[in-house]
Design a protein around this nucleic acid. Structure first.
Lengths: 133, 133
DNA sequence: CTGCATCCAGCTGGATACTG
DNA sequence: CAGTATCCAGCTGGATGCAG
């Protein structure tokens, strides 16, 4: 009699893989970048410091919850700095840190590949859909 | 009397933004790359053609459903080609297309930034968590 | 061997209401 | 102005069973 069922073994393997996987630096980075709002916030901040409400205006579709959440994550990761001015009303400015700025060339590289090749992808899709109608 | 409530206007704005947003090439690319299994499959195929079951073995944590789904998407996008050999049992090989290969330097760049800077990010996190205990 | 169909638990993220 | 707290609808993706 086995000490584990096949299902339990599979689950073990999956958990071990997940543990390893979540340690992968590339994965951590992709998890950040892939967040819907992260690249938009980073790009908006590229031009310079920006207030919370300005960000909300520039990134038209974002909800308050997600903007705050995204900014917190980026601040925690050291990609963005937060400066509070205790006037009345309160003023908060966000800014890219040097680490955050070092990420921007990569964002630009992604943009570059996308703009250069996305039409090939679109054509491939149309072809695929036509063949597998 | 307004023809729209404020809530309706906000929803309109959000839908318009979403529509614009989903057209953005960079977004389309990030949506692909950020899929948990996409980069793993692409990386696994970088060494050369590979059978379905080999992929399943190399990428230990993937479920059958997600592996198939990922491969379908990549095939549809023209990043991966699928070759069926109608033997018994069936044999299917997957391979990077030239378009898929053109994406690999970008994947490498992501890996490179991640490995160079993820420790800075980790330190920033520890600091943030310590301060905001 | 290589898949497809279905079910469902868990997470994501928008809406809403409230605060210093 | 710049958030925080709560609720919940919809999507994601793993598990399972079946098929050519």
């Amino acid at each position: 009699m086995a000490t584990q069922t096949a299902a339990e073994q599979r689950e073990e393997a999956r958990k071990a893989f997940d543990a390893y996987f979540s340690q992968c630096p590339s994965r951590k980075l992709l998890d950040r970048l892939s967040d819907k709002w992260v690249t938009l916030v980073l790009t908006a901040l590229q031009a310079g410091p920006c207030r919370y409400s300005d960000l909300a205006r520039r990134i038209a579709g974002v909800s308050q919850k997600m903007l705050t959440q995204t900014l917190r994550v980026l601040e925690r990761d050291g990609l963005v700095s937060r400066t509070l001015t205790p006037s009345v009303p309160v003023r908060v400015d966000y800014e890219l840190t040097p680490l955050g700025e070092s990420l921007m060339p990569l964002v630009a590289a992604i943009k570059s590949w996308a703009e250069a090749h996305i039409e090939d992808v679109e054509r491939a899709r149309e072809h695929y859909d036509a063949v597998n109608a």
